[in-house]
Structures are given as structure tokens and as C-alpha cells.
Design a protein around this nucleic acid. Sequence first.
DNA 1: CAGTATCCAATGCGATACTG
DNA 2: CAGTATCGCATTGGATACTG
Lengths: 108, 108
Amino acid sequence: MKRTYTCGLDAAIAVMGGKWKGLILFSLGEGPLRFGELRRAVAGISERVLILQLREMENSGLVHREVHQQVPPKVEYSLTEFGRSLNAAMAPLGEWGEDNLQRIEAIP
Amino acid sequence: MKRTYTCGLDAAIAVMGGKWKGLILFSLGEGPLRFGELRRAVAGISERVLILQLREMENSGLVHREVHQQVPPKVEYSLTEFGRSLNAAMAPLGEWGEDNLQRIEAIP
DNA sequence: CAGTATCCAATGCGATACTG
DNA sequence: CAGTATCGCATTGGATACTG
């Protein structure tokens, strides 16, 4: 991050930056997911980008990464308390998008 | 836009894309602003980028652009009804950012 | 399964200068 | 005042192949 924000919205957007973090947050909202499950949940994302986004979100304290030592490997991602609070704050935005899907998709 | 969204949040984020649209929306929330006023309100943005973002938001139906024929030129930007509805949906996110400013700024 | 490693393309963004 | 025109770098994202 390393910047100063002019308002809360500014800061929130910086944390949510990029095309995918919102979706990842949303997908983890229901409960923990393994890497592969998450990749399927966030349709269209590449492995590389998913990892990058997850690492950033871990770094921001939004996501917790838990490694279960076993074969085959199992890694679970979940929201932290902080992540859940952001998730809740995003809910109205999600509803807005839901309500206006038609209109948004019609934008040239 | 020209894509299909997997959920409302996805769609909303597509509309809000980029680093500045949230701030512009927020700045116009209080009422109409002229180009120059807006440029000062959204501190740090370049003229070029501000125009680009405004055009996109006009195109999305979020912002209305009104030209007053006079010398010197006067152009006012305001939120449409659609823009105001999005603004309202973003409010909780703005509050979240406000409440967590310290923490967000501390992210490495 | 859960990642890394490369490489490449797109585009976002910033700075600056100029104009009706 | 309200834009346009250029230029160029930095970041982001995508495709694919490989590994512990």
C-alpha cells in the first residue's frame, strides 16, 4: 500500500484493487475453500493470478491460509475477521450489481 | 462492458473499475461540480485521466455532463439517478474504509 | 493438489505541452 | 476554462508448461 488516502472509499478500493479480489472475497464468504475449489469458484481466473491475488489478500490480513500436512497436499483459504467485515461492507454493492445486471451488461 | 458477470459484485466492480471512479462518484455525491472543481476535489488525478474516467462514467449512465454555452466555458458534471443509487450502495464500503484507515495504511 | 516459472500482451496511468 | 495530443513507463493479466 504505502500511500495516504483521501477518504475511506479510496482506501477500501485500494484494498479491493484489481479485477478479482471482490470475487474471491465473495466466494470465501460462505466458508473455507481449497485452492482448487476456489479456482473453480472464481471462473476464468488463471492459477498464476489467483495465487498472486491470494498472497496480496493474505498480506492485507483479509485471508487466512492454512496448510494441512498430508498427501496429497491440502491448503485451505478462509476469511479472517477483517475479511468478513469487508465482505459485509461489500454486500450492498453486490446487491446493487445484482439489481442492475441487465443494465450493466447493456453498457456498450 | 460486453461481458457476462458471475455475480452482482463482479458487475459492480466492472462499472467501478480503476483507481478513480469511486472517488469521482463520491465527490459528485454532494452535488454538481465543474471540471476544474472536480479536478481539485479528486486530488492527484491528471486532466487526461479525469476526462477518460468521466467519459466512461457518462457512457455507463452514472454521470451527466451539462455544457453551459458561455465564455469562459462552463461544464458541469452531476450524478444521474443511476449514479446516485450506486453512490448509496458504496456508502458502507466508504465507512468501512474510514473505520479501518489506520490498518489499511499500515499494510506493507 | 497446489503451486512456480516464464514469457508476452494489454492497458492503465502519469507528465507535459498545446488549443478553442 | 475545459479540454486534446503525445509519449512512455509500470503494472496487470493471460497462456502455458513444469514441479514437490
